[in-house]
Nucleic acid binder design. Sequence first.
DNA 1: AGAAGGACCAGTGGTCCGTA
DNA 2: AGAAGGACCAGTGGTCCGTA
Lengths: 253, 253
Amino acid sequence: DTTSSLDAFSQQGLSEEPVQQEKQAAGSGGRGTWEMVVAGGKKKQRRRMGQKKLVAEVDHEDELQGGIDDENGDGGDYERQREHPFIVTEPGEVARGKKNGLDYLFHLYEQCREFLIQVQNIAKDHGEKCPTKVTNQVFRYAKKAGARYINKPKMRHYVHCYALHCLDEDASNALRRVFKERGENVGAWRQACYKPLVAIAGRQGWDIDAIFNAHPRLAIWYVPTKLRQLCHAARHSAAASRSISGGPDQMAF
Amino acid sequence: DTTSSLDAFSQQGLSEEPVQQEKQAAGSGGRGTWEMVVAGGKKKQRRRMGQKKLVAEVDHEDELQGGIDDENGDGGDYERQREHPFIVTEPGEVARGKKNGLDYLFHLYEQCREFLIQVQNIAKDHGEKCPTKVTNQVFRYAKKAGARYINKPKMRHYVHCYALHCLDEDASNALRRVFKERGENVGAWRQACYKPLVAIAGRQGWDIDAIFNAHPRLAIWYVPTKLRQLCHAARHSAAASRSISGGPDQMAF
DNA sequence: AGAAGGACCAGTGGTCCGTA
DNA sequence: AGAAGGACCAGTGGTCCGTA
């Protein structure tokens, strides 16, 4: 009973490299160039260890080395543990050197969505609770499926950047070009993504949850705390300035 | 920041007895008789202690004695801690002696819904995450609001009984009458509530989550694990018997 | 310095089991 | 015995901060 969902994991297609699976689902702004680099990486399939842990680890899949740490085309640096840091790239641009571009970042969100769909299908088959969001369970599933480069802190960190990409791709692309031209780092670009999102929220009644939920690819992500707070603060500021300017109270809109 | 939602609690209408507030929202099958008994109980308002705890308890409202433990009309048993146990009653019937009837049980679900709505309104005002279900937060709020007779294990225990009441009140009422006539205890009635629910699910594609979510008063309750399991098992049985009978495969329906 | 992510923590969903 | 609910526990959402 407690292990049924874990058994399900082992019944699913764990033998494929997700990075390889999803070449077609490239970041919508990209030309798929980095995916070709990815696909060029060698892939070893995981080996079974024929070994069971005591609890909640039935049929654990040991991925060991293999394929995954080549996804940036650096030719097999087996020492490296962490992903290359992101740099601000234009849409379609491949990051050079030991860096990852923003099309790759957004592609990770699409991958998470596909892992969620797999988890949902398993849950439905088994008559279990079916997650509607990318939860810890989905991150765990992604890791078991071999996508070790996906982790919760990273995905949560850039959710609002992905939100802008989903909600106003033109604005997102323009922002990327500006920040690349200025030579800004990823942190600065990330910070800058908040402002256009708050503006979008303002045009739609400040309800950032409703905005996320109305978008099929965004609805599966929790609204980041800071974005929610910024929208809330901006709503108050907007209301206050309307009140000072003496216009009719538009709080209800 | 961490106490802002708790501050909000103290700004809300904590000074009223929820039992008194909600006379109009009586269990839909009842005639409101037990509410009159309830309203007949004397009510003392809570006293402020002028005392603040260190963390997460700002402006805690001490209800102490008062009103609440009279809600069954037993004349003020200050020793009693627990609610009277439920007995199987017909729709509209008042439980006699130190017992509670099923209209009262269902009324507790309506009360929880109103507490949820209050929590949602506070959350929206403060730009915080807004719960869609009756969560721990709602139970905590209910307790602070003085509804000490509401607790999570009890509400979760009888959710499927309330679900039947919501989804097929006639069937629910008929079941109550039968079990009362037979002199069955609450546990037996509770068990019997599963079967008609599974039948309803079968008529609607076995998706018990969809059935809950489609009903506005039920959507705020988590689907009980056992009900979900029963629906899942029944779906398999139904599919197997269809397969044996040689008819066309109707799994998709 | 800027950034990736292991690992922690407060509060959750779920319900057992000591209580009356 | 039947039943109410305090309290526990595994796993969650959230993100800090030791790491590279």
